[in-house]
Design a protein around this nucleic acid. Structure first.
Lengths: 264, 264
DNA sequence: GCTGGACCCTCCCCCTGGGGGAGCCTCCAG
DNA sequence: CTGGAGGCTCCCCCAGGGGGAGGGTCCAGC
C-alpha cells in the first residue's frame, strides 16, 4: 500500500491531481481509510496512472480517459486511442495552417488584391452537401471531392467549387456544398443535382496553398466594406488550379466570391 | 465603421470574444459610443484581429498576444512569434513522447524488467548542472552534452550519464546534472568537476528510444516498492548506447539507477 | 511512551479562455 | 413609428488544474 505522496512520486502525478482523479472516480485509491480519509494506492495502479498521465499529455479530456480506461477489450481500447490521435493530427493541420497564415499576416507590406464585381448566372451542378463543423471540414472536403470525381468522371465541364455558409465561420458550424459542374448531374450516393442561384459576386483570387486563404478572405472583406457594399449570402470558392492540377502549391489558384449588393 | 456583428463576420471572431478582447484591452474598438456603449470597429483593424485569431489558434496566451501586437518593430515581433513556434515544437516533441510511451503502456503483456541492486562507489566526473523545468530539459540536455563533449574531448573514460532530482518529476522543476567520466575533469564554461556520491542503486536498462523511458521508470518504481525498498535521492541515468553510438534508436540502451535502501 | 515534523485531509478561491442565457436598450428598414 | 434584429451588461457555467488556510494523523527518534 502506498500513501498518496509515494504514489505521486512513482507516477509523476501531483498529489492534488490524484485527489481530483479520485473525486472524479477516474482513479480510485485501492483503500480509503474510513476514519481518517487517508488514500492508499496499490502498486498495480501505477500503470493505470501512467496511462492517464500520457493521455492527459495528449489533451484527451478526462471523460474520454475514463471511457478508455473502462474499456476492457484492448482492441477497442486502442481504437479509441487511435481516434484521439487522429484528432491530434487534425489539430496539427490547423496549427500548420495558422502558421502559414500568420507568416502572411506579419510580412511588412502585403500585396493588395485585385477584386472584380461580376454577375454570376444561376446554374445546375453535381453537388455534395452537409452541415458540418470547421473541425471536420477538411476530412469531409476530401471525401466529397473524391466521390464527386468518381461519379461525374469525364463529364466534368469546369473546375470544382464550393459554397460555404457564413455560419460555418461565425459559429464554427454550418452548411457546406462542394460541386463539380457537369451537363447531366447524376444522383448517386451523396451526389445530387443542386442549383447555385444567380448572384452579384465580389471576386478575387487567392494564390498558393489553401492555408493562407483566410488572409485573402479578410482582404476581400475589407474591400467589400470599403466599396460600400454589403455581404449577402454564403461565400463561394472555385478551385481553378488545385492539387489535382499541379503538384506545386505555389501554382494553385482559388477564386473567392462573396455575394454582395451595393449599399450607398 | 463596422458594428461588432459585422466585424465578427469579417474576422471569424465571435461577438463574445471580441467583447472580451475589448475588456482585456487586447483589441479596442476604434470608436465606442459613450451614450449607448456600442462598439464600432474600423476596417483597418481586420488584419490585427486576424493576427490575434491565428496566434490564439497556436495557443499563444492572450498576454503574449498583447505583447506581440504592441511590439512595433517587425523584426522583434517575428522573433517573439518565432519564440512561440519553438514552444510549439517542444510541445510536439512531448506529444510524440507521450504517444510512444502510451503505445508501450497499452500493449497487452509488457515485458518484465530485470533489476540489479548494486553498490556504486563515489567518483568524480566532468559535469554540467542546472536547476531547470521539465519543459526545457531536452534543449538543456542537448546543449550540455555538446559542451561536455567539446570540453572533455578524447579524455572520455566511459559513457555519459545524468543525475536528476526527484523534484524535477514531482514538481516539474528541479536540479539536473549531466556528466562525462574523465580522468581530469576540466573547468571550462559550464563544465566543472562534480563528485557523484556512493550509493546503493536499483538498476535496470531501458532499451530503445528515450521516449518510452517513463514506463520503465514506473516498472522500476514498482519493483523497488515490491522488494520492500525505499527511494533515497535523485535518480541516475547512464547512456550506455545513445544517438552518438548508433543511429538506430532500437539499439539504444539507457541504464536507470535509483538509490535505494532496504526498509524491512 | 511522547513528541515534533512530515504528511494527509477538506474547503475555498484563483487562473485562462471561453460559452449560455436573462433582461434590457438601440438602430434602422419598411 | 414600430418591430425585430442586434447591441449592451451581468451572472453563472465549463475544464483542469494551482495556492493556501486550518486542522487531523502517522511514525521515527528520543
Amino acid at each position: 500500500m502506498l500513501t498518496i505522496g509515494e504514489f505521486s512520486r512513482l507516477t509523476q502525478l501531483s498529489v492534488r491531481t490524484l485527489r481530483r482523479y479520485h473525486e472524479g472516480s477516474l482513479l480510485e485509491p485501492a483503500v480509503v481509510d474510513e476514519a481518517t480519509g487517508y488514500r492508499y494506492y496499490a502498486v498495480e495502479q501505477i500503470p493505470t496512472a501512467q496511462v492517464i498521465n500520457r493521455l492527459r499529455e495528449l489533451d484527451v479530456p478526462l471523460a474520454d480517459v475514463q471511457r478508455i480506461l473502462r474499456t476492457p477489450d484492448p482492441g477497442v481500447r486502442s481504437a479509441l486511442v487511435a481516434e484521439h490521435l487522429r484528432r491530434l493530427e487534425a489539430e496539427l493541420d490547423r496549427t500548420r495552417a495558422a502558421v502559414t497564415s500568420l507568416r502572411r499576416l506579419l510580412q511588412p507590406d502585403p500585396a493588395p488584391i485585385a477584386v472584380d464585381v461580376r454577375a454570376e448566372p444561376a446554374r445546375t451542378v453535381a453537388a455534395v452537401e452537409a452541415v458540418i463543423g470547421t473541425e471536420d471540414l477538411p476530412a469531409w472536403f476530401a471525401g466529397a471531392m473524391a466521390e464527386l470525381q468518381a461519379v461525374v468522371g469525364a463529364g466534368v465541364t469546369g473546375p470544382p467549387g464550393g459554397v460555404f455558409d457564413n455560419a460555418l465561420f461565425e459559429e464554427g458550424r454550418g452548411s457546406a456544398l462542394l460541386y463539380l459542374p457537369t451537363a447531366e448531374p447524376p444522383r448517386t450516393g451523396r451526389v445530387h443535382a443542386a442549383t447555385l442561384p444567380a448572384a452579384e459576386l465580389a471576386v478575387t483570387t487567392h494564390a498558393g496553398e489553401h492555408d493562407g486563404v483566410d488572409v485573402t478572405y479578410g482582404q476581400l472583406g475589407t474591400w467589400v466594406v470599403q466599396n460600400a457594399m454589403s455581404v449577402a449570402g454564403p461565400v463561394r470558392e472555385v478551385y481553378r488550379v488545385g492539387p489535382r492540377d499541379d503538384s506545386d502549391p505555389a501554382a494553385w489558384r482559388t477564386e473567392i466570391g462573396w455575394p454582395v449588393f451595393r449599399v450607398a
